[in-house]
Design a binder for these strands. Structure first.
Length: 860
DNA sequence: ACCTCCCGCCATGCT
DNA sequence: AGCATGGCGGGAGGT
């Protein structure tokens, strides 16, 4: 066991699969083995089981730290008890103990509760895998095995995996299997989450709650109602509550989200919880506030105690895992009332829309539910649609998303279902889609903004980039490497890019630029359409894309496209996937399945009418461009139209496989990127200083990150986009008005002058270089692999909660988000409401925060 | 007495 | 029916 470390990348499950989950007693032996050696020095209570894991990847630093943090107490106890032998080879001892000991003794001997804590368990779990796994290696995780090895019930593993999944550190492959991604996508994910959090106005909500509390202290009970309303409205509208799982672009998260319950709490709660940290200025979030916000809908005050308590319990679970990841640490906030447990973000600073623009997009659940028959209601409990319809996203979007998800699920989820071979595939298939949408949306925004100023080229570039990024980052190792290379150059990426292509090309053999991408997209989209029934425009985004593509490409048949896409996916993976020996067949299967999926979907949905619908829709929309982005993802279409379409296509393609081409394009894109950032900024943070940074970042991200998706964009745009036309317009206008400067800036990332005002705020004087530096800060264990994404780390200066502009920004945002799903209808009215709400909220924002004294005490 | 949160029942969903 | 997931909250360990 010990030897295992040998490999740089070990395979997670080296062991045979044993199914039986053992309980501690039984499994004890096994378990012990597993634990890492790293601890060595420490007496880690836990079992050292496998040493192997630790080393290769991350420098064990993380583990050590974690362990040290966690374990000291435990160790001591353990030692006392003698139960643990943390050292290796002890398992036996343990067993003996058990056997010998009689009831009481035995029990005593058993690990104390702490030893069984989720946090510790999580450390053990994490210790098994490198932070930056080699994509080439098989990184599958067998839950049963892990449970056995760690000697815990499977239920606990689910808790961990669910949280990790929310961060896209793992993704579900199949029934009992997950794929370990490590921190490769972490920054990107965080960036996306931040963007989404901003969209949801979490910061505002937090302030409101604090304010409320503050008032309460003074017995201003009345304020509650008002505030509550506000909160509710925000939540609902913004969609927090509604939000479903936020998916990232590249990584194959799609798979992860597959499960039926996907949207449920733990995962979503985890993401929301993280969002709170990313959005709040002090980056300290108390459990109480988090619980209130997460509960959202319910009247905060009214919350039943039980519900509140339950929420808190869950938050502890999540916090334990996040703590193990070193993303947060426990602290206490002292307020007038007293000390409250809270957590402080200790993870990397994230720029709102770090690298990717498009990758992420939150899935809207609530609305869809209603509309959709689908069983999976996103939020059964938490987000309950019930309370209010919240949605950040338009119904149409939601529908799309759901449909997509459902498809995915069907495809992926089947527990028994064969494992998806490569992430690449799956990710490409599914992931791209969403991300693309997001990207598109972002692009559109950009375009809109830029319209005035800049030409489409940028747009295209961006698109291309986005496309590229996604595919590349997650999957291909090589890509990542390349990316890394690129990163340095940042702005100059262009030059770099070219290089990449060649390397990539090998990896992604077949990928035809457009063909692959096109098809794949189409596939996804269609289903949605079909299922959704939705309005043509709104839903069709994907389809539209296809349509566009098809148009561009000469209407390749969807089927072909799908097939191509599949192929491409397969091709893409190669590099990354290789590792998995077993699966050669599987891969094929997977591929095929994908193809099938695509074909099915396509055939079913697309062919039947989706395409036609799309076209029609498009026509209706008028412009092709519009069409492309049907639902608003791409909203900007009109303006972008010609360009947009192309860009879209390219992006899609890129995303899927084209990496090479895309990359190439992307380089140019750099310019593009900026735009994205601007968009993001505009949307989310118009007021915030972020913008500048973003700009900076974006380039970097682009260059650096293969993934390319701009989470921010995605997040922000995705939902909103739906009604492209109106919404977009509004956006644009607003942005221009508010953001214009930023926008411009973004537009010309490198050279372009920054908008004066914003700039000042952001102070981005740093240029690309800065970006990079920041970005990497956090992780770097594995240089090469590190994230390609590289989100820009742009750190924003301080963020202030509510800058002056908030209102405008909000309104804008709202419009996006809100956009009524209806394809045709832009969301006028709804928006209004929001605005009102928002404004209110805005006012609220200023609410005095309480003084929080944070005593950073570490817990554990 | 309160904070944490483990534990495992049992609902949910898929096969 | 059987199995995989995972919501949920009782109640116990810690402090």
């Amino acid at each position: 066991m010990e030897n295992e470390k040998e490999n740089l990348f070990f395979e997670p499950h080296k062991r045979g699969l044993m199914k039986t989950p053992l309980k501690e007693s039984t499994a004890a032996n096994t378990v012990l083995t597993e634990i890492q050696p790293d601890f060595g020095p420490l007496t880690t209570p836990t079992k050292p089981k496998e040493i192997s894991q630790g080393e290769p990847w991350t420098p064990t630093a993380n583990l050590k730290m974690l362990i040290s943090a966690v374990s000291p107490e435990i160790r001591n106890r353990d030692q006392k008890r003698g139960l643990f032998d943390s050292r290796n080879g002890l398992p036996e001892t343990k067993d003996c103990l058990h056997e010998h000991l009689s009831g009481d003794e035995y029990e005593k001997s058993q690990p104390s509760r702490k030893e069984k804590s989720l946090g510790l368990l999580c450390h053990k779990f994490l210790a098994r895998y490198p932070n930056y796994p080699n994509p080439a290696v098989n990184n599958d995780i067998c839950l049963d095995e892990v449970a056995e090895e760690l000697n815990v019930e499977r239920r606990r593993i689910y808790d961990i995996v669910n949280v990790l999944e929310s961060l896209h550190m793992v993704s579900r492959l199949a029934k009992n299997r997950y794929t370990w991604h490590g921190r490769h996508n972490l920054n990107k994910t965080l960036g996306t989450l931040k963007s989404v959090g901003e969209e949801n106005k979490y910061a505002e909500q937090i302030m409101m709650i604090k304010k409320k509390e503050y008032e309460q202290e003074f017995d201003f009970s009345k304020t509650y109602s008002i505030e509550d309303h506000i909160i509710k409205s925000n939540t609902g509208q913004n969609g927090h509550p509604d939000m479903c799982f936020v998916e990232l672009p590249g990584v194959e998260f799609r798979a992860a989200s597959v499960n039926s319950r996907k949207d449920k709490s733990l995962r979503v709660m985890s993401q929301k919880f993280v969002m709170l940290f990313l959005v709040s200025t002090p980056q300290i979030v108390s459990l109480e506030i988090a619980a209130k916000i997460l509960i959202g809908e319910d009247h905060v005050e009214d919350l039943d105690r039980s519900k509140f308590k339950t929420k808190i319990r869950r938050l502890y679970d999540i916090a334990n895992v996040l703590s193990s990841l070193n993303l947060i640490k426990k602290v206490h906030v002292t307020e007038e009332r007293g000390r409250k447990p809270a957590f402080k973000w200790t993870g990397p600073e994230i720029s709102p829309s770090p690298s990717g623009r498009g990758p992420v997009f939150p899935l809207p659940c609530s609305d869809l539910e209603a509309k959709r028959p689908s069983k999976d209601n996103c939020a059964k409990n938490l987000f309950s649609t019930r309370g209010k319809p919240n949605f950040t996203r338009h119904p149409s979007l939601i529908k799309l998303v759901k449909s997509i998800e459902s498809d995915r699920r069907k495809i992926n989820s089947a527990p028994s279902s064969p494992i998806k071979t490569n992430k690449a595939e799956s990710s490409r298939d599914l992931a791209p889609f969403p991300s693309k949408m997001a990207q598109l949306a972002a692009i559109c925004k950009m375009q809109l903004e830029e319209q005035s100023s800049e030409p489409r080229k940028k747009v295209k570039v961006q698109l291309a980039r986005s496309g590229q990024c996604k595919p590349v980052a997650p999957l291909d190792t090589p890509a990542s490497a390349e990316l890394d290379l690129t990163a340095p150059s940042l702005i100059q990426p262009l030059g770099v890019v070219p290089l990449l292509p060649s390397p990539l090309s090998p990896a992604v053999p077949v990928i035809l630029p457009q063909a692959p991408s096109g098809p794949s997209y189409a596939i996804y989209l269609q289903p949605a359409h079909a299922q959704t029934v939705t309005p043509p425009q709104g839903l069709s985004p994907t389809p539209s894309c296809k349509a566009t593509k098809s148009k561009d490409a000469a209407d390749a048949t969807t089927e072909k496209a799908s097939s191509d896409a599949t192929k491409s996916g397969a091709s893409t993976r190669p590099g990354s996937l290789l590792p998995v020996p077993e699966r050669p067949g599987a891969k094929n299967r997977d591929k095929e399945p994908a193809g099938e999926r695509g074909s099915k979907r396509a055939s079913l949905l697309e062919d039947s009418g989706s395409k036609k619908k799309f076209k029609e829709d498009l026509k209706g929309l008028e412009n092709v461009s519009a069409t492309l982005f049907p639902s608003g993802y791409l909203i900007p279409l009109t303006q972008c139209s010609s360009l947009g379409a192309e860009s879209i296509l390219s992006s899609k393609e890129n995303s899927s496989t084209l990496s090479p081409n895309h990359r190439i394009y992307s380089s140019p894109i750099t310019g593009v990127i900026p735009v994205t950032s601007s968009e993001l900024t505009a949307v989310n943070f118009p007021s915030f200083h972020v913008t500048p940074l973003k700009l900076m970042v974006s380039p970097t991200s682009v260059a650096a990150v293969p993934v390319g998706n701009s989470p921010a964009l995605t997040s922000s745009h995705p939902v909103p986009v739906q009604n492209p036309s109106s919404a977009i317009v509004n956006f644009t206008l607003q942005h221009l008005g508010l953001l214009s400067p930023s926008v411009q800036v973004s537009a010309s990332p490198g050279a372009v002058p920054v908008s004066p005002r914003i700039e000042a705020v952001s102070v981005i004087s740093d240029n690309a270089g800065t970006q990079q530096g920041r970005a990497s800060r956090y992780d770097s264990p594995v240089p090469g692999q590190n994230q390609p994404n590289g989100q820009s780390v742009a750190v924003m200066g301080t963020q202030q909660p509510v800058p002056v502009t908030p209102k405008g920004s909000q309104s804008v945002a709202e419009s996006f988000f809100r956009t009524p799903g209806g394809p045709g209808k832009p969301t006028g009215p709804s928006c209004v409401d929001f605005d009102g709400a928002n404004k209110t909220s805005v006012g609220t924002l200023f609410v005095p925060q309480r003084k929080l004294e944070v005593s950073t005490e570490d817990v554990h």
